[in-house]
Design a protein around this nucleic acid. Structure first.
Lengths: 251, 251
DNA sequence: CGGACCATTGTGGTCAGACCAAGTCGAATG
DNA sequence: CATTCGACTTGGTCTGACCACAATGGTCCG
């Protein structure tokens, strides 16, 4: 069992995110909550603290009120993804779009600030991606490492922090569906790896961006396929949080 | 006077950010801190909570340890900017670069998902920017509103949250230097506003990006000038609380 | 009858002191 | 010398109380 304040916070976060409390509405008082959850007030207090930290509520003497979602912290993304039985595909797509964009920015900054040495991490990784004898998992990992390397190479701290935050929130909701993904299009990946390599060596930001755009499009479709396959088989799960039966008998 | 836990947290954050504690090193215990600041342990506890929330420390039974900066939350940016007597120009530049990139992503998504009606907020704002009889401040505000409108128009929640977070952290450290900025290059702005308008109406993502790139470059230089001017005249500010003397009287 | 004023009440904010479980670290032991 | 074990420290939680401030509703005055 989670701690008391985690229970309370989780319940409140869920209630707010799903819109059971309207924006501006008053939240229950700490004393109310502590009674309802048979906890001491400190627990309720910590829960409210968490809500405030997430930017979901505005807590001050006299009462706590619900904030607009657009005023929230980036950390609510994880909760939004976790809310339904399946992550909202549109939200996932938006996140992927942003991550792609961030990586592109990083890559552009990478080539614009310095001409990278031939043994730069990014180039090494790209060459590894050429190999034809990689299994799917290794290929996935290398792609991830490549993105990570581009971000690190940018030397742009805010950029790295944003990307890490986004990724950390996305990963837990998405990894379960990635295990048996379809075979990626190696040919396309190889081609686009070569493009990227060339663009990097020529320090041409626009070419880098173009190559990355293709790369991200590949990733996106690869992911979409795996995800869609799962969302089809999850059509009739009406349970809340336990005993997920994925009765899959499609034609 | 700030609250006790704010004092403690501020002190610790500053110490960590400036590197007075090395990564992995143990932080003082809550009981130590509460004694040193003549505060209740709860205050020290809340301070540690804040450190954990900022991702600066890893606090668990047995002791709290300093985390690597790359593991931190995006919210440390504000503290990093606030740390010196003047914000680190390089960091500011990185942030501006990221914000620019985010807005570009937003604009691309805006034109790719829907052809916008002629009376869309963004277009209205662009037309306002044409006018020649705007004073500097109005022009600034309109530019800000334009960026805001692009972000909102993207309908991309993660994107909006990130941009808002970044901007909110940057603003307080930067606004003081923006009041008497130099006159912006109206001609260039107007030209690039027209470009952007055309690109938006044609729903051409690449043209939108190109126009925005020019726009951001203008903003960046406008800002840089104002900022540089101040960093020159800030040689002899010896207030604050430690009377930092920075010699620096170059030709 | 309407509006300004004020005390009561409830709220979050803080404090004090205690106990518990988990981690730390050094001493005793094989 | 390596391992184990136990005392000690640390954060985590709980209890209960007091404080300052905001909200609320009633009262009083115009």
């Amino acid at each position: 069992m989670a701690t008391k304040h985690d229970q309370i916070a989780g319940s409140l976060v869920s209630d707010i995110i799903t819109g059971r409390y309207r924006v501006g509405e008053r939240l229950p008082s700490e004393r109310d909550l502590s009674e309802r959850f048979t906890a001491h007030r400190g627990a309720a207090r910590e829960a409210m603290k968490k809500l405030e930290q997430l930017g979901l509520a505005d807590v001050k003497p006299g009462g706590a009120r619900v904030r607009d979602r657009s005023e929230a912290s980036l950390d609510i993304i994880g909760h939004l993804l976790r809310e339904g039985e399946l992550p909202d595909p549109e939200l996932v797509d938006q996140i992927l779009l942003v991550i792609s964009g961030l990586i592109t920015i990083a890559a552009r900054q990478l080539v614009q600030t310095q001409s990278l040495p031939g043994d730069h991490r990014v180039l090494t990784l790209l060459q590894s991606l050429y190999q034809d004898d990689l299994d799917r998992e290794t290929h996935s990992l290398l792609r991830l490492e490549l993105m990570q390397a581009l971000l690190t190479g940018s030397q742009n701290l805010p950029l790295q922090l944003i990307a890490k935050t986004l990724f950390n929130q996305l990963a837990p909701s998405v990894v379960p569906y990635m295990h048996d993904q379809t075979e990626p299009d190696r040919l396309a990946y190889n081609q686009c790896a070569r493009e990227l390599e060339l663009a990097l060596l020529q320090t041409d930001p626009n070419a880098v961006q173009a190559a990355l755009e293709r790369f991200h499009e590949l990733n996106r479709t690869t992911f979409r396929e795996a995800f869609n396959r799962h969302s089809q088989t999850a059509g009739d799960t009406t349970q809340t949080l336990n005993t997920k039966s994925k009765g899959a008998h499609l034609p």
